[in-house]
C-alpha cells in the first residue's frame, strides 16, 4: 500500500466525521441535508480509493449508484423541507415532528 492511499482514507474519515458532527449539531434542515452529502462524498472517496488499491472497477460502479441514491435522497428531502416550510416558515429540524399523523 502506498502512503498516498492511506492519505485518501484518512481524508475520507475526517470528512465523514465533519459531516456527522454537522448533522448532529445544526438545526436547519437544509444544512443537515448538506452534511449528509458530505458524509456520502467521504464514503465515495473511500470506495474509489479501495477500488484503486485492489485494481477493481466495482468501487467506481458502486459510487455511481451512490450518486443516484444521493440525488433521489436530496429530491425527497427538499420536498419535505418545502412542504414543511410552507406550513411553518422558519421551521427547524425540531418541527419535523409535526409530520407525525
Amino acid at each position: 500500500m502506498r502512503s498516498i492511499d492511506a492519505g485518501y482514507l484518512v481524508l475520507a474519515a475526517i470528512l465523514f466525521s465533519i459531516g456527522a458532527f454537522g448533522l448532529l449539531v445544526r438545526r436547519n434542515p437544509l444544512v443537515m441535508l448538506m452534511c449528509v452529502e458530505l458524509m456520502l462524498n467521504a464514503v465515495n472517496l473511500t470506495f474509489v480509493a479501495f477500488g484503486m488499491m485492489l485494481g477493481d472497477l466495482a468501487g467506481q460502479v458502486t459510487v455511481l449508484f451512490v450518486l443516484v441514491v444521493a440525488a433521489a435522497e436530496v429530491v425527497v428531502g427538499l420536498g419535505i423541507v418545502v412542504a414543511m416550510a410552507r406550513r411553518r416558515p422558519g421551521a427547524t429540524a425540531d418541527d419535523i415532528r409535526v409530520l407525525r399523523g
Binding site: 500500500m1 492511506a6 474519515a13 479501495f50 485494481g55
Partner: peptide, 19 residues
C-alpha cells in the same frame, strides 16, 4: 488505517472487472 499498514487491503483482487 495507520495501524493496518500493508494488511489493510486484503481482499481478492479484481473480482468483477480489473482496471
Amino acid at each position: 488505517v495507520t495501524l493496518g499498514g500493508a494488511d489493510l487491503v486484503s481482499g481478492a483482487r479484481s473480482v468483477t472487472g480489473s482496471i
